[in-house]
Write a protein that binds this DNA or RNA. Structure first.
Lengths: 186, 186
DNA sequence: TCAAGTGATGTCAGTAGCTGACATCGGTCA
DNA sequence: TGACCGATGTCAGCTACTGACATCACTTGA
């Protein structure tokens, strides 16, 4: 992170990272699959928080409550593990480099997949599970972006609740089954 | 595509691709930013189809209709440009390699971003535009996955309509504003 | 107590993706 | 006809990444 902040991700060689860490380049690649992976360690617990929360919900829990629980657990886990300022600096680095964005998107896609699978395991319909997995990631990312905005004081969990509410509004504005014209997003 | 099908993406070197194409390696890299990009050319028209459809919708069009129009246009453009069988083979290649998945996710993220921006330009609320952009991509991908399943006969546009309907159902099952308990996704 | 085993690290050589600098060559246009 | 331009070839070089083998500290069991 120090080196990336100093001279950017691409301009930093693995040799330099290894040297700063006091190991050889070869050892670096034994700990990280590739150069990008340095920034994406320890996401297992984060992902597990979502999945476990879904698995832990009682069988008759309404879908909306299952997804809310998943977001609360996942967002909560992230809040505990990382300070907002660290997340901000990390995200700055990622935003400055497409390679890192690709990796982040892959991680998010895996999260969406894991959520989808967890929902399928509860018997959620196929055609809903996949979209719901995407939705959870979409809501998380929208809230996360707000969370690291300068001056933002609210917690990630709170912002996720808000983003989820916005999603429901969007749904209300979009669903053709809506019977009243009360809600139009435009 | 021939080479990737024969021996896989990673086992194929750029030198081999260039040789098969009758040019040098250096020339290859003048046409494609990197090795992966070979599989992702010409997506500008695809993206533009979504964006243009959104821009072309009359100002008072309900959001749901704007999104439907965007999906119809985008899916339609893809159907015209590529045969289903070509898409299937291409997707097989991508599915077999994480590097390619990363690139595909980046392209989809850019599509989501473009849709979001197009919606913002129409005055759609901030907190809705981003989620709606993600939703369009989510629906497209769900439909696309179905479209290339063996034995699937329906058109991509048709499948997108169906996925969008599923999304609306999901919304109905999720929105806390639902007053009756009629809709539970589980 | 020592020998065998194990896991983390170092060393070295090599492959492949990718880039910059420069030369070449065919076509276009004043 | 000569200047220009865009596409390509050539070559040297960097860096990410990998396989094979050596080393060394530490554990474990006879």
């Amino acid at each position: 992170m120090e080196l990336f902040a100093e001279r950017g991700f691409e301009a930093t060689t693995v040799a330099e990272i290894a040297e700063r860490a006091g190991v050889t380049e070869r050892t670096f690649f034994r700990h990280f699959a590739d150069k990008r992976e340095v920034l994406f360690g320890g996401q297992d617990r984060f992902l597990a928080a979502f999945v476990d929360a879904i698995a832990a919900a009682p069988a008759d829990t309404p879908l909306v409550d299952v997804l809310t629980a998943a977001l609360d657990a996942g967002g909560g886990a992230l809040q505990e593990a990382r300070t907002r300022d660290f997340a901000r600096r990390r995200q700055e680095t990622i935003a400055a480099n497409e390679q890192l964005q690709e990796r982040e998107l892959l991680k998010m896609a895996k999260l969406a997949r894991a959520v989808t699978d967890a929902l399928l395991a509860r018997g959620v319909a196929d055609r809903h599970a996949r979209l719901a997995g995407d939705m959870v990631v979409s809501v998380f990312l929208a809230a996360f972006a707000r969370w690291i905005e300068p001056g933002e004081e609210r917690s990630l969990v709170e912002l996720q609740r808000e983003a989820l509410a916005a999603w429901c509004e969007l749904a209300g504005a979009t669903a053709p089954v809506a019977t009243n014209g009360a809600f139009v997003g435009t």
